[in-house]
Amino acid sequence: MTELHFTDVQRDCLQELVNVAMGQASDKLARYLGTFVHLQVPAIALVEAALLSQHFASRYQQQSATLVSLGFFGDQGLRGETIMLYQLTNVGVIAQLLGYSDDAVSEAEMLTDISSVLTTTFLSGLAEQLENSFSYAAPRILSSRDRDFADKLAYTAEQWQLALQVDIRYQLTDYSFNCDMILLIPGEAVLRLRQTLDNILADF
């Protein structure tokens, strides 16, 4: 297996592209949702997927969370999956955020709707930065609030082995609403991503 690692230059380049995509997403989301959306500077790491669940279990210790997954595909074999993590005592916040009031909207639907908006807005910006474009699968709820999400994540992670993990926290100030996004790019696609980064770097 080819050694999967990023040089400092490659990592900086990716970090920069992610930052730009985040800035754009933050701006678009703020206008659409009518509230300030703060995206924290992401942590980028190449991780063993098996350790992922531990990482998040320690962060969400003894609390239940909802996971929503959304897969994407681009050209040149670039593909991945985002997982949104929510810890909500009250999904009413999302209903307000999305402007759902007079409709019967289920909790599951609110979660998939907000996930789709938050992730695809960021990802389409990232695709643009990578001179690519993504197509998306419909978001799916991986676990509901009462299930142990670490188990679920461990199960999901089995399919990834080694993955590029980009960890982004969304904070919506007006609604005191937080969620985390993990962007996972599986081993094979990381090689393609690295190639893309090299091409971009060569252009400078």
Partner: peptide, 20 residues
């Protein structure tokens, strides 16, 4: 109301939306 909000997101964010 729900559908318009979804379509708004497609139009303004230029990203796909889904319904299952």
């Amino acid at each position: 109301a729900w559908l318009r909000r979804k379509l708004d997101s497609v139009l303004h964010l230029q990203v796909p939306a889904f319904s299952s």
